[in-house]
Write a protein that binds this DNA or RNA. Structure first.
Lengths: 331, 331
DNA sequence: CTGTTAGCGCATTCAA
DNA sequence: TTGAATGCGCTAACAG
């Protein structure tokens, strides 16, 4: 029997007779034969593999997104080739970036999901880097661009949800501990805070904004500074749950009770949030959905033969929702 | 110029003249030539890739270990091929396991790190599954076996540290909320608890042991039951920080103050632990080191030509350490 | 429905 | 130090 016939069988081609197919299958299981996807990739030029450029594994968000990507990929029978970056600014660690990209490309991945958090100082660079690349790419959580496919969480909406909730309870002096300057997600959440306040005709809020670094320690530190500057602050929207935890911690040490003296809302809804003391009101993101969407999106791009055709790009938003717990409830 | 010469250049072979080498390198950068690792793998039979079989990305431990593995791999110029399992019992999800293993093997990975948490009901199966496999393999966090290479966290030691700390402060009625029955790591930590108590001649502790499921919710639930059975309980060693958080939560609702009425010690030292209220005493594991060690270990195995030679197996332990905070401090 | 020929891009072996 | 022949395991295109 020829190798061709075998190839046809393992590729589920219809043009093989039933008995031949069965005979081949029997021998295959007998011999424990395992088709080499390496050879197959070389011959076909495609690998059924997705390249994912991620950002560390120390943060909650990126990790959960990756989990979503992994699950959806395996459902679609795609393997993952993973490369992680430690710096939000790829251009600051060119060596590593080139190593990762090179690895992905030389392995013939069929598409790339760029899951490194967006940052003002990197958007230009990333756009340029991918400009001439012929490979289908989907970007996660960065600013929309007409020429790119982006899948993102609507942090602005989330910020509005959080602040509207606080406003609805009568709070007016509402501050925010934002994420690090320059991070796209941080700026979106902050914009949501600002828009909600403007919508309620609350002015002079800019002095109630302070930068954090995502960590609980930075949240604690930030609130200390904020409180010194504006002791009349009534509520805080923190751009993630860890910082919210830090804010609560600082408030307690400053003799403030949460939520009695200070209302706090976080962002993410990490698993521990319901068990904090007080339990934390927060904005929940469906990170898993984000990953799923990214895979589906790139999967479609991969199927299209003409790379020129649906270059339309565009952004898909995933909307977060508010989860109200104790930390924001005025008595 | 022949392809052979090019091949020699990109493989850093010594037998090329300086000028030829330079000429080739120039042309390479000019053309943006990128060697195909697929073709290289096919020709050489090795891929410079590590296969990692991990366990979800929803848990703290496995994720951090993976981070350590990734970092060390990239330092050693190894790529990662990732496959995730959702069930601790591989034999319960045969389809997925075979899919993952098949994928790794058909891609010619040079070694496999099995990073699925050990479980009594799976140890037999896993051992059998890898018995005849010729590929270098290192196992993470499972029971030592003479024939296998295992890298593991010494949870037993960690448990002893936690309980000795409680004993040193005069507590005697020390309970434990363990991890799910059957999980190797859970049983090790529990064994540490038991050994420490026996070492201090504290008997009758078995009624103070209750099973949790790693989650904060399960910890809360467990402590409620425990407290009902034994209201004289003075301290709790929880097998992870989330459950410890749940215990604190339950205690508070039961009218107990931590640490005044109940001392609590966790395990893991998640980033939020210092910011809990009260801040959480816990056993810190260097998960990054665990990953690093695993990569180093398999790297060495990969280099050995004779697969038979150093079949000695053996286990490498990583020792956790105690971090004392408020939740366990009497007075 | 099945077999033949050719080639994917590289490394190994041997010859020059 | 360089080049030529051969094969890694598979699939595309064509022929039968």
């Amino acid at each position: 029997m020829s190798r061709q016939t075998v190839s046809r069988v393992i590729n589920y081609r219809p043009d093989v007779s039933q008995e031949t197919r069965q005979r081949v299958l029997d021998v295959i299981t007998d011999l424990g034969y395992r088709p080499s996807s390496v050879a197959r990739t070389l011959a076909q030029g495609r690998s059924n593999t997705l390249g994912v450029v991620g950002f560390g594994l120390e943060y909650f968000g990126p990790t959960r997104v990756l989990a979503g990507i992994e699950r959806r990929s395996s459902e679609r029978s795609l393997s993952l080739q993973l490369g992680l970056l430690d710096n939000v600014l790829p251009q600051r660690d060119l060596g590593r970036v080139e190593q990762v990209m090179n690895d992905l490309l030389s392995r013939q991945v069929d598409g790339i999901i760029w899951a490194v958090p967006g940052h003002v100082e990197s958007t230009e660079w990333v756009a340029a880097r991918f400009e001439k690349m012929a490979i289908p790419t989907v970007f996660l959580n960065r600013n929309p661009s007409p020429s790119q496919d982006v899948v993102a969480m609507d942090g602005r909406h989330g910020g509005r949800l959080a602040v509207d909730h606080l406003l609805a309870q009568g709070y007016r002096r509402i501050g925010t501990v934002s994420g690090p300057n320059g991070w796209w997600e941080a700026e979106e959440r902050e914009a949501g805070w600002r828009e909600a306040l403007q919508g309620a005709r609350v002015d002079d809020a800019e002095d109630l904004r302070i930068e954090g670094q995502w960590s609980a320690a930075s949240g604690e530190q930030a609130f200390r500074v904020l409180y010194r500057k504006a002791p009349d602050i009534e509520a805080v929207f923190a751009a993630n749950d860890q910082m919210a935890l830090g804010v609560v911690h600082a408030a307690r040490q400053l003799g403030l009770q949460v939520p009695k003296d200070l209302a706090v809302v976080g962002f993410d809804d990490i698993d521990e949030a319901p068990y904090f003391h007080p339990s934390l009101t927060t904005v929940r993101q469906d990170l898993n959905a984000l990953g799923t969407l990214a895979v589906d999106r790139i999967y479609r791009k991969m199927l299209v033969q003409q790379p020129e055709e649906d270059r339309q790009g565009g952004i898909s938003w995933v909307r977060p929702r508010l989860v109200v717990r104790e930390s924001s409830l005025r008595d």
